[in-house]
Design a protein around this nucleic acid. Structure first.
Lengths: 278, 278
DNA sequence: CTAATTATGTGGCAAGTCCCTCAAATGTTG
DNA sequence: CAACATTTGAGGGACTTGCCACATAATTAG
């Protein structure tokens, strides 16, 4: 058992004489990384707070902020820093690419959902748009998700019950994953699962992250109806792990008619293709 | 097929029009809209610049910012405003009150934590500060939490493993709660639980939310050592549910010496009191 | 119409921030 | 070891911000 309070001693005792054995002090690079990282969790920071947290002087932090601003890694404010556009929580590509297509897909999905349904909604760029759309349209539904951005987006509608999965938190993606997540998903029954993918091919839907793929696969198997959303940029893309074959997918919602082997595979598996017009 | 849009909560219908021939200056509402609109284009604004641009005094803009912040339409910074952060509910309140006290408490907690420990960290204003502090100080620890702001703050440190609890997502507070959350907490063993409270009194620690209290109580019972954090504004406050008695709490970390019945109860229960100096 | 309420500006004061310079500590190189 | 560059902290002065009390203008209510 540990019982060494060491109570105050934070920034008062060993401050005057920094010695080389003071392992607590961070290097400049470490401070910079820390500041940038903190900005993914908080919208703004104050220089004085950073200085207190890192145990360095405000002047040092201010100099750090100048450098970070020159590198466009932060946005300076009077008294601190704020997040630059680029570092919005993992929404970088989501906001810039295929917005119209994804919005159209999201609208089509929202039309499918009926009151009192139970949905599983996986992490992803398009599914985040779906969550926003559902938040403004849907009523009295239950959504099971492992993505916290989606949970937050849905929660603005108080008639939506949002159930979050347990698991290990993925720092850059903002969702949980792992065996606990899978087990939790398997404990539910849902009307529909809505999942995205890194790519879709004749073999089925694939993802670049095996942990994410495992979650998508579990959702697909667990729901009465499995819906895959993918804009046309995903056509014939192949990534690490194939998490579902077309026979497991009931509907594909996309923005353009598939062709070639992909179209053949969809037809043979009996997957309904819904084209959402932007 | 259900087409029930009807729920567009965009709230731009009612345009209040004060019967006045406003030819010279903008109304308060117009200023507010201007500020919010500007924030969609720029990440941050400075109050002094807004004041100059709109031809009003800085004090007026500052009052505007206070109102807009209360409506969660902006995020205040020192000297101005930044874009609102929908994913992090109620973060603004946490940053404004008792900062020095909470930072001191957070620093004291960070000194207690050793590498390779397993912590349970509950939702709360002070515990959020603790998470930020741990993210910059701690190494190789595992943290179990039900609060997503805390998860995000911790995740910036890649040596911290963050495990999130399942449960129902609380829209305004940003944490999960419910029977799933409790069951998940009970499935772990932890070295320490760090919980906050709405208030502390001679009877013990209480919370205004019974669901949150149930989680705090479960964490306290589950960990080898239970630590309660509470600044002095919590002294002798009483709220809905008492979730832990002092005999269950091993340490109280606060910023001021308790007095009267509270001090007596702490002494009789053998709870160690750690005073963190701001 | 007058009175009450609200909105806005002004001035003062404490605190915070910025930027500059200088000095000490640290790291690097020959 | 010595010389040099880099990093950091401290101090001071100028400026900015936040907050308060109070006065004034504008709007609403009676």
């Amino acid at each position: 058992m540990t019982s060494e309070p060491l109570l105050t001693s934070d920034a008062s005792a060993a401050e005057k004489r920094p010695r080389k054995s003071d392992g607590d002090r961070l290097s400049k690079l470490a401070r910079h990384k820390h500041i940038v990282a903190q900005l993914t969790a908080a919208p703004t920071l104050r220089a004085s707070e950073i200085a207190a947290a890192l145990g360095v002087s405000g002047e040092t932090i201010r100099r750090d902020l100048v450098e970070l601003q020159e590198q466009k890694l932060i946005n300076r404010t009077y008294g601190g820093a704020s997040r630059p556009f680029a570092l919005e929580p993992a929404l970088t590509d989501r906001k810039t690419l295929m917005i119209a297509e994804r919005e159209a897909i999201a609208a089509a999905i929202a039309d499918l959902v009926l009151p009192n349904e139970v949905l599983m909604l996986a992490a992803g760029a398009t599914t985040f748009h779906i969550a926003r759309r559902l938040a403004s349209r849907a009523r009295d539904i239950t959504v099971i998700t492992h993505d916290y951005a989606i949970a937050g987006a849905l929660a603005v509608n108080s008639s939506i019950r949002v159930l979050c999965c347990p698991g290990r938190y993925h720092p850059t993606e903002g969702y949980v994953f792992g065996t606990q997540t899978i087990a939790n998903i398997n404990s539910y029954e849902a009307n529909r699962a809505i999942v995205s993918a890194t790519g879709i091919s004749a073999r089925g839907a694939n993802d670049a992250d095996d942990e994410a793929g495992a979650i998508y696969g579990a959702m697909v198997k667990r729901a009465a109806e499995a819906i895959l959303v993918a804009d046309h940029s995903k056509f014939d893309q192949r990534a690490l792990t194939v998490f579902a074959h077309w026979t497991d997918i009931d509907r594909l919602v996309t923005d353009r008619q598939p062709e070639g082997a992909l179209a053949t595979a969809l037809r043979e598996a009996g997957t309904e293709v819904i084209i959402a017009q932007p």
